[in-house]
Simulated assay, not measured.
Amino acid sequence: MAGRGVTIADVAARAGVAASTVSYVLSGKRSISPETADRVMAAVADLGYHPHAGARSLASRRAGVIAMMLPLREGMHLPVLMQFASGAVTEARRHDQDVLLMTADEGPAGLARVAASAIVDGLILMDVELADPRVDALRRLGLPSVLMGIPEDAEGLTCVDLDFTAAGRVCVDYLAQRGCGDVVLLGAPEAVYARRTSFALRVRDGFLGRGGPSAEAWACPEDPVSVQRTVKELLAAKPDLTGLAVHNEPAVGHVMHALADAGKRVGEDFHVVVIGPDEVAERTHPQLPSVLIPAEVMAETAVRHLTRKLDGVDVPDLTLIEPQLTLR
C-alpha cells in the first residue's frame, strides 16, 4: 500500500483512530496523548504516507529545507554538536536550503512526522547506532537521507563519517612510538556504549585491535568527581600504565588534573593523546596531541551529498574521512 495511493483514512485505520486524530497529530493543532501519537506515527512510517507529495510534484518545487537530527542527549558534547550544526547550516545556504534541527530522541516517529508533513526535502541523521531503529523508518519513508555514522546494515544508505576505527589505531601507534607498553582508551560514558553508538564502538575496536593484549578500554564519565575517581581506579588497577587515549571531550581537562594529582608527568614519563576538537587539546597544560574530529567538514560533506541526491546525482554509499594526528 506504500506510496502515493495511501490516504489519511488508511493511516487512521492502521492506527485505530479517527482520520481527524491523524490530522491533529500531523499538524500539531491539538494536543494528542503520546501513546496515540506514537501509534499514528508508526502507521505513517509503515504505510509510507506522504500527504503533500502530489501537490509538491505539481508545483515542481522543493520545500527548500533539510532536517538535521542532533543527538542532544547523555554523553554528547554540546560544543562539538554545534560545530556539526554550523557546518550543515553554512553549506546548506550555499545550496539555497535552510536547516530544520530535530533531536535524536524523536526517533522513527520524528522522521515519519517530518516526512508526512512534507516540510523538508531530505534528512541528515547523527549519532547512528549499530542497530539504529531509524534506519528501517528511513527505508520505508523513502525520503532522501544521509547518515553521519555507519549502522551494521548500511545497504542502500548514504553514510559519511570520520574513519573512527583508524583513529583508534592512530592513537595506539602514537603511544607505542613513545615507548608506552600498557595503554588504555578512556572512552565515552557508559550510556553511549549501552546505546551501541557506532563511532564510539569503532574507536574502541580500532584501539584494542591495534594495541594487542596490553590494551584496555574503560568507559569514562564526564563530571569532575567521577573522572577523578575513574582515573584513580585505573592507575591502581594498572600501576605500569604509561599511555592514555581520551575519547571524551568534557573529561580531558579533568583527566589531566587527576594525572597531575597522581604525580604523573604528562609528556615525560606519561603520554596522553586526545580524539576530539583542537581547542580541547590546546587548553591543557601541557598541550596534547590530538586526532581531530572534523565536525564541520563532515557536516558539509553530508549536506553536499544530500543536495546531490535531491538533484538525482549519484553519490558514494560510504565516505570515510581519514584521521589526522596533530602533534603539539
Score class of each variant (00 low, 15 high):
Ala258Phe: 07
Arg204Ser: 08
Leu186Ser: 00
His50Leu: 08
Leu78Thr: 15
Arg14Phe: 06
Pro108Asp: 07
Thr319Trp: 08
Val313Trp: 04
Gly181Glu: 03
Arg93Asp: 10
Gly179Tyr: 06
Arg308Glu: 14
Asp10Met: 12
Leu130Trp: 02
Ala45Ser: 15
Ala137Tyr: 03
Pro289Glu: 06
Ala118Lys: 06
Val6Asp: 00
Leu138Ser: 02
Pro144Ser: 10
Ser33Tyr: 04
Gln287Glu: 15
Arg140Gln: 13
Ser198Asn: 15
Gly263Asp: 07
Val40Met: 09
Glu74Ala: 07
Ala43Ile: 10
Ala258Met: 03
Ile150His: 15
Glu74Leu: 06
Pro289Leu: 09
Gly276Met: 04
Ala53Met: 11
Gly16Met: 05
Val114Cys: 02
Lys232Ala: 15
Met68Cys: 09
Met298Ser: 11
Arg30Glu: 09
Asp96Asn: 08
Gly3Leu: 13
Gly156Ala: 10
Ser23His: 04
Thr165Val: 11
Arg202Lys: 14
Leu235Thr: 02
Arg229Ala: 13
Pro289Cys: 10
Thr90Gly: 04
Asp105Thr: 14
Val6Arg: 00
Pro323Gln: 11
Thr36Tyr: 05
Leu241Gln: 02
Ala12Gln: 01
Phe270Pro: 12
Gly28Cys: 13
Ala53Pro: 00
Thr158Arg: 11
Phe199Trp: 13
Glu152Thr: 10
Val273Phe: 03
Asp105Trp: 09
Ala191Pro: 06
Arg4Tyr: 13
Ala13Pro: 03
Arg328Gly: 15
Ala166Asp: 11
Val274Arg: 00
Asp132Cys: 04
Asp153Tyr: 08
Gly28Lys: 11
Ser214Lys: 06
Asp127Arg: 12
Asp261Ile: 13
Leu175Cys: 03
Asp311Gly: 13
Thr242Tyr: 03
Ser31Met: 02
Arg56Ser: 07
Gly156Phe: 13
Glu155Cys: 15
His305Gly: 00
Glu300Gly: 10
Glu190Pro: 00
Asp314Tyr: 11
Arg204Lys: 11
Ala237Gln: 14
Val89Phe: 03
Arg196Tyr: 05
Ala176Pro: 01
Ala154Pro: 02
Pro286Glu: 12
Ala295Thr: 05
Leu175Thr: 07
Leu186Gln: 01
Val114Ala: 02
His77Gln: 07
Thr197Lys: 13
Leu235Tyr: 14
Leu72Asp: 09
Arg14Trp: 12
Pro144Cys: 08
Leu101Ala: 07
Leu208Gly: 02
Asp98Pro: 03
Val170Thr: 10
Thr307Val: 15
His305Met: 15
Asp121Val: 06
Ala176Asn: 04
Ala67Glu: 03
Val160Arg: 09
Asp121Ile: 07
Thr103Ser: 13
Met148Asn: 07
Thr301Met: 00
Leu310Gly: 09
Val99Phe: 08
Ala15Phe: 11
Val231Ala: 03
Pro213Lys: 10
Thr284Pro: 02
Thr326Arg: 14
Arg210Lys: 10
Gly267Val: 07
Ser20Phe: 01
